[in-house]
Design a protein around this nucleic acid. Structure first.
Length: 357
DNA sequence: CAAACGTGGGT
DNA sequence: TACCCAAGTTT
């Protein structure tokens, strides 16, 4: 445990100071809107929390707006087609979230009468909801006292108490400290205030301590080295892989496939490829023999755990039978509606820009 | 438990 | 440019 030189009195001040600051400086985010006087719509809280996992507020905004406009509650979302959902999620990344989102909505409808359960335990049993999200929903949507810990809060707490233990080993310590400073009432506002603080003031680089309501009680600030926290374990290098995608054109159509249901970009619509993955290069074998042109500029795409140098090979497919490869013709003029992951969006742009007939 | 799992903005 | 990181969960 950390050197506990903070009295309960002092840690109690943290919540009061932060909530007062939050009353004035809270970000105005769409999922925080409260219908009437009460709490925000739990469906909105849940949807935003899933979208915000490892994803910035800026990236989430347009997706949240489109999703809530199109699917207004759990029942509507549960009833949608899987392919439509995946296409709507395209570009946001971490596609397992989209598959779990749908599973979760369907479970909420079939087993919980279309309303989210309110207890942290019950929430954690739902697909896509882990420790963080369960606590966040319980606190933010249902007013329960839950201890919320995300990467922002890890950073803020690490600095407040100048924790020398590196992450992820420090997680239990951070949870215990967050538990200690979380108020009995307004735990949800407190969590959001901590996250706002981490996002806007207690930033990774160059924290704005002069604007921080907790600066006086911050150990790292007193020590003059807030940027040194949180201490983290070094990360692994990112390998570079090579692969090929295949652009099969017939008139104004291109042949798209659906990726398998597990692994990278699972269940997403895509261009055919040569089997590249995080562990190995693609085999450079086209899906079928044809006259393949392969002189387009390579694409570099950075995934979380490897980089990919992707070559695009092009062929023209004659009218008549379809290519011997499960898939569908897609109009090249409406590729934006295909729901392609960003990697393949880049590939389609290269193919089209090449003046490819 | 460590690794898998996307993407784009910031520095 | 290169590297860091984000409202984490699942296996």
């Amino acid at each position: 445990m950390p050197n506990v030189q903070h009295s309960d009195q002092k840690t109690g001040d943290i919540a009061a100071l932060l909530l007062a600051h939050y009353a004035v400086h809270a970000r105005d985010l769409p999922w925080r809107k409260r219908p009437g006087q009460g709490w925000p719509d739990p469906y909105h809280v849940w949807l935003s929390e899933i979208m915000l996992q490892q994803t910035t507020v800026m990236a989430v905004m347009p997706y949240f707006a489109r999703f809530t406009d199109r699917w207004k509650n759990f029942a509507e979302l549960a009833a949608c087609d899987d392919a439509d959902l995946m296409a709507a999620w395209a570009g946001l990344g971490y596609y397992a979230r989209a598959r779990n989102l749908l599973k979760c909505a369907r479970t909420v409808v079939s087993e919980h009468g279309g309303e989210l359960p309110q207890s942290e335990d019950a929430l954690k049993k739902l697909p896509g909801i882990g420790p963080y999200t369960a606590a966040a929903i319980a606190a933010i949507a249902f007013g329960q006292r839950a201890v919320v810990v995300d990467a922002n809060i890890e950073r803020v707490v690490s600095r407040l108490f100048a924790l020398s233990t590196p992450l992820p080993q420090a997680k239990p310590e951070i949870s215990a400290l967050m538990d200690r400073i979380t108020p009995a009432d307004r735990a949800g506002d407190f969590a959001q205030a901590m996250m706002d603080l981490g996002a806007g003031i207690c930033s990774v680089k160059a924290p704005a301590c002069d604007r921080c309501p907790l600066a006086d009680g911050c150990q790292a600030r007193q020590d003059g080295n807030p940027e040194a926290y949180p201490v983290k374990q070094p990360k692994k290098a990112r390998p570079v892989r090579k692969g090929t995608a295949y652009w099969i054109r017939r008139g104004d159509k291109v042949w798209l496939v659906k990726r398998k249901d597990s692994g990278m970009l699972a269940a997403m619509r895509a261009l055919p490829d040569d089997g590249w993955n995080a562990k190995s290069d693609g085999n450079m074998c086209p899906p079928f023999p044809a006259k393949w042109e392969q002189r387009l500029p390579a694409i570099t795409h950075i995934f979380s755990h490897f980089s990919l140098e992707l070559q695009v090979a092009v062929t023209a497919w004659p009218h008549g039978p379809n290519p011997p490869l499960e898939g569908e013709w897609w109009d090249v003029n409406s590729l934006d509606k295909a729901g392609l992951p960003t990697l393949f969006i880049k590939a389609t742009k290269v193919a089209l820009a090449s003046g490819e007939r």
